[in-house]
Write a protein that binds this DNA or RNA. Structure first.
Length: 242
DNA sequence: GATGAGCGA
C-alpha cells in the first residue's frame, strides 16, 4: 500500500554528517530502494561542507569585528598617550593618515615660515595666512561695495561653521597641539587659541571649527572629559559671541 | 573660569 510506503519514508532517518579532527567528513544517508528495502549510504570526503565554510566565514567576520574593537580601544589609549607628551606630533602613529599637509600649511612651525621673507610675521611668531589682517586678499573681495570689513567677514564665516569650544587647556598648549588633538576627526577649517596679547601664553581655551558637523560631533564626544597633561579637557559647542 | 581681534577705509 502506498500509505505504508509513506510511513516508511517518515521512519527514514535524516542524513547526518560528521567531520573529524583530520577534516574528513562522513556523510550518512538512508534511502529506500524500489523494492522497499532500507539502505544506508556512507560517503567520506575531505571536502569541506558549505556550512563549515560559512561557519568559518562567520567566525572570521567575528574576528574582524573583535579586531576592529581592539583597534578602537587602542586608538583611545593612543589618544591619551598622545595628549601627554609635548612632542606627541612626531610620535603620533596617525600622522600619515591625518590631514598633516593641511596642518603643516596652516600651522607651519616658525622655522618653515622663515623661508617666506615677504610675509615676515611680527617677532617671528607665525600667523596663519587667513589670520593675517595685512593679507592682500582682504580688499579685493567681489567689488567691496558691501562695506564689509575683514573682521565682519571673519565673524560671518566663523558663525556658520560647526565650532567647538575647548576649555581647561594648560597654558603651554599651542595651536598645533590643538590641531593635532582634533584633526583626526576630520578636516579642521580653523583653530583659534585664546592667548594673552603680551605674554602670548594660552588663556586656557580655544575654538576649533570643522568642515563637517558630524566630525565636530564625534570630536566633542571623544575628547570631552579626556585627560590632557594633568587636566581634564572640556569640549562643548561654541556659542556665537554677540 | 573663560565665547576668539582690534578699534584701520
Amino acid at each position: 500500500m502506498s500509505t505504508n510506503w509513506a510511513d516508511e519514508v517518515d521512519g527514514v532517518e535524516l542524513p547526518q554528517t560528521f567531520t573529524d579532527a583530520n577534516g574528513i567528513t562522513t556523510y550518512i544517508e538512508y534511502r529506500v530502494n524500489d523494492d522497499g528495502t532500507k539502505i544506508k549510504i556512507t560517503r567520506r570526503t575531505r571536502k569541506k561542507l558549505i556550512h563549515d565554510v560559512v561557519n568559518k566565514a562567520v567566525a572570521a567576520r567575528k574576528d574582524d569585528k573583535q579586531e576592529a574593537m581592539k583597534q578602537q580601544l587602542l586608538n583611545k589609549k593612543i589618544l591619551c598617550r598622545i595628549c601627554k607628551g609635548d612632542h606627541f606630533t612626531s610620535r603620533c602613529p596617525y600622522k600619515d593618515s591625518l590631514g598633516v599637509e593641511d596642518a603643516a600649511a596652516v600651522f607651519a612651525p616658525a622655522s618653515v615660515v622663515e623661508a617666506d621673507p615677504e610675509e615676515q610675521p611680527t617677532a617671528g611668531k607665525y600667523v596663519a595666512p587667513h589670520m593675517r589682517s595685512s593679507a592682500s586678499r582682504g580688499s579685493d573681495r567681489g567689488g567691496g561695495s558691501g562695506g564689509m570689513s575683514d573682521r565682519d567677514a571673519l565673524r560671518e564665516r566663523r558663525e556658520d561653521q560647526p565650532t567647538l569650544r575647548v576649555t581647561n587647556l594648560s597654558e603651554d598648549v599651542t595651536d598645533s597641539d590643538v590641531m593635532d588633538l582634533f584633526n583626526r576627526f576630520g578636516h579642521i577649517s580653523r583653530v583659534f587659541l585664546a592667548r594673552d596679547r603680551e605674554t602670548n601664553v594660552c588663556k586656557g581655551f580655544a575654538f576649533v571649527s570643522f568642515s563637517s558637523r558630524e566630525d565636530a560631533q564625534r570630536a566633542l564626544e571623544t575628547v570631552d572629559g579626556r585627560g590632557y597633561d594633568n587636566l581634564i579637557l572640556r569640549v562643548e559647542w561654541a556659542k556665537s559671541s554677540a
